[in-house]
Design a protein around this nucleic acid. Structure first.
Length: 484
RNA sequence: CGGGAAGUAGCGAAGCAUGGUAUCGCGCCCGGUUCGGGACCGGGAGAUCGCGGGUUCAAAUCCCGCCUUCCCGACCA
């Protein structure tokens, strides 16, 4: 086997990113065994390796959600059709995407059930029963669940008919508290996604036309994918009193008056897995940030004929040491050649590979190979765990910084509409521009460029000058991009 | 949901025009030689040709319907 040039992919089963990003993404999902198609349109199977990533995201997020005073509960999958109908804007937004259950037990149902596309309706109904007094507030409940939205175009993880998520639903005494909660969660999402998934996001407010059906305001975090398109990575909604009024969620206030609660809802989904693939992955496949990698380390024993006797015991010893130190480690003792294993685990995105062979045993060391930089280095057995900790931390940091650099290099400001259109036509990425706040301009821009307002930065600063498209004074800056 | 393409073994493909019961590469299983970047030799298993109907003595091949996937557009986490 001739040596291939440095950096060239050994993986032939994956379409190069530059050749066809979309194809590349699908290849990675399938080859890394993250997910597979099911017989039902738009419904994927999340395979063990992909699900392990989700579990790590879940754990990281769940810990934070609980640390901020929220508790988990579970509400039903089925919702009587009538309940969804109660909030006018909400129905209008979700009706086209709702799946119905019309029969049960061999008989047609009196009232059709919907399969939840989101749980505001059922949770609001329950909150109306549970909340009586200001002393009952706030209610801070989260649930981990599946939801179903009948999508026309589906892609694994990014948009599927059924998906997994967490949805928080809270009820508060005052508008200010609800807003504070909405923003607190937005910040929590940003911190979690940036820390755990090493994925930089911009936090901001959604425009009226992009906000959640039935919300007062929607905030989002938006990430930039490797092909320069934006992806909404999480949303947090201030529901105002809209759902409280629709579902009659009232409480007796401190001043004895009866008032409607102020609500919020917020969620992130399995889409985050797709985002991580598209932010960090390369032509060799998946690149996982150590904090969400099912295996942070793969140990590959190297050896001649009798490696099982000579090298394997040492490899197992190393595995034990690293597992004891708290790492997620797999030892690949399959009867394959080392080079084959290298490619295999690179494709699956394992952050750090440890090679151990006769030469290393002699020198009382191991050879490490980083997935992110492909850098190889000998590391002495003494203090191995500590060194591995450093390397993994450095990979996590490097992936984040690399993504920030990419994001910044693909974020530009437009001074004129011509330049704006030009920027969106040429290099993909974010374009920041002043906006008058009108839905008409927003729609017009979308028609012209296919780009949408991803969100409006939190600072709330009003830029000088006029809207990028019309002559009205700018009301805010907006981040535009073509989005998934 | 419109426009286009595709579905044959785990993966990638050939066969289809001109109907006669399926071929190749990789992978998989067994044995052996190998092993520091996707090894080699020998033997072997594996396919209701996406699903359902139709035409025919005979259908992967022709006809009709449906399902799924991919790409491009309109809607969405």
């Amino acid at each position: 086997m001739a040596k291939k040039p440095e950096g060239e992919s050994f993986v032939t089963e994956i379409t190069p990113r530059s050749h066809d990003f979309s194809r590349w993404y699908l290849d990675v999902v399938r080859r890394a065994e993250l997910a597979d198609y099911s017989p039902v349109k738009g419904c994927m199977v999340i395979r063990p390796y992909g699900y392990a990533i989700w579990e790590l995201i879940q754990q990281a997020l769940d810990k934070r959600i609980k640390a901020t005073g929220h508790v988990n509960a579970y509400f039903p999958l089925f919702i009587p059709e009538g309940l969804l109908m109660k909030e006018a804007e909400h129905v209008e937004g979700f009706a086209p995407q709702v799946a119905y259950v019309t029969h049960g037990g061999g008989e047609e149902l009196e009232e059709k059930l919907i399969v939840r596309p989101t749980s505001e309706a059922i949770i609001g109904t329950m909150y109306a029963k549970w909340i009586q007094s200001w002393r009952d507030l706030p209610v801070l409940i989260n649930q981990w669940a599946n939801v179903v939205r009948w999508e026309k175009v589906t892609r694994p993880f990014l948009r599927t008919t059924e998906f997994l998520w967490q949805e928080g639903h809270t009820a508060h005494e005052t508008e200010a508290e609800a807003e504070e909660e909405t923003l607190k969660i937005l910040d929590l999402y940003k911190e979690t996604v940036e820390t755990e998934l090493a994925m930089p996001v911009i936090a901001g407010r959604k425009s009226e036309s992009e906000k959640f059906a039935g919300a007062l305001r929607t905030y989002s975090i938006e990430a930039l994918m490797g092909d320069g398109r934006a992806l909404q990575a999480g949303t947090s909604h201030n529901l105002g009193q809209n759902f409280a009024k629709a579902f009659d969620i009232t409480f007796q206030a401190r001043d004895k008056s009866v008032q409607h609660v102020w609500g919020t809802s917020w969620g992130v989904t399995t889409r985050l897995i797709g985002a991580a693939i598209m932010v960090h992955g390369d032509d060799s496949g998946l690149v996982l940030p150590p904090r969400v990698a099912p295996f942070q380390i793969v140990i590959v024993p190297i050896g001649r004929d009798n490696w099982r006797e000579t090298v394997l015991p040492r490899a197992k010893q190393i595995q034990d040491t690293l597992v004891a130190a708290g790492f997620r480690v797999t030892l690949d003792e399959r009867d394959e050649r080392p080079g084959w294993k290298f490619s295999e685990w690179e494709m699956r995105g394992v952050p750090l590979r440890i090679e151990i062979g006769p030469k290393d045993i002699e020198k009382f060391q191991v050879l490490t190979a980083r997935r992110d930089t492909r850098e190889k280095a000998g590391v002495p057995m003494d203090g191995l765990a500590a060194r591995v900790r450093e390397i993994l931390d450095d990979i996590q940091r490097n992936l984040f910084e690399r993504a920030v650099t990419f994001r910044d290099e693909h974020t530009q400001r437009a001074a004129s509409y011509d330049q704006f259109k030009d920027l969106l036509e040429g290099r993909p990425g974010f374009v920041i521009a002043p906006w008058c706040g009108s839905a008409a301009c927003e729609a017009h821009i979308k028609t012209d460029t296919q780009a949408t307002i991803r969100n409006i930065p939190m600072s709330g600063a009003v830029p000088a000058g006029t809207c990028i498209r019309c002559d009205s004074p700018a009301q805010s800056e907006a981040w535009f991009a073509k989005a998934y």
